[in-house]
């Protein structure tokens, strides 16, 4: 079933996005990727991913604003969002959760395996 799960990764750091992409592909996901949130917002309706992995500190439009925009869109708001950021204070976590994120992961504190597990978990809940 995971083979059919379509992950959209929004991450501006090329090294981290490469590592994550390889991991997800190796784990059998379909993967789309943007290095900024503005382009992601344009491409999103056509892609219709099952889950979004979202960084916060991004050039121009930041992850919180992106999240707020899609949660205000009737069609897009159903897509679950997992925040994957190195911002990790309680205030930022609270803000992300309040804006409608499913979960909030601090990059430096999780392994790629743990991210995959979390994404599977969230996707499974929403694909039911």
């Amino acid at each position: 079933m995971t083979g059919s799960v379509h992950v959209l990764l929004i991450e501006d750091d090329p090294f981290l996005s490469e590592l994550a992409s390889k991991k997800f592909i190796a784990a059998g996901f379909r993967l789309s990727y943007f290095n900024n949130a503005e382009d992601a917002l344009v491409g999103l309706p056509g892609l219709a991913p099952d889950i979004i992995l979202l960084d916060i500190l991004l050039p121009r439009l930041n992850g919180f604003d992106f999240l707020q925009t899609i949660k205000g869109d009737e069609k897009l708001k159903k897509i679950p969002v997992v925040i994957l950021s190195n911002l990790g204070s309680q205030l930022e976590i609270d803000r992300g959760m309040k804006l409608g994120a499913e979960t909030y992961l601090v990059k430096a504190n999780v392994t790629l395996d743990e991210i995959v597990v979390k994404v599977k978990e969230v996707a499974a809940k929403h694909l039911k």
Partner: peptide, 10 residues
């Protein structure tokens, strides 16, 4: 944090 994450994941 970003480079440390890169190292960790690699």
């Amino acid at each position: 944090r970003t480079p440390l994450t890169g190292i960790k994941w690699s």
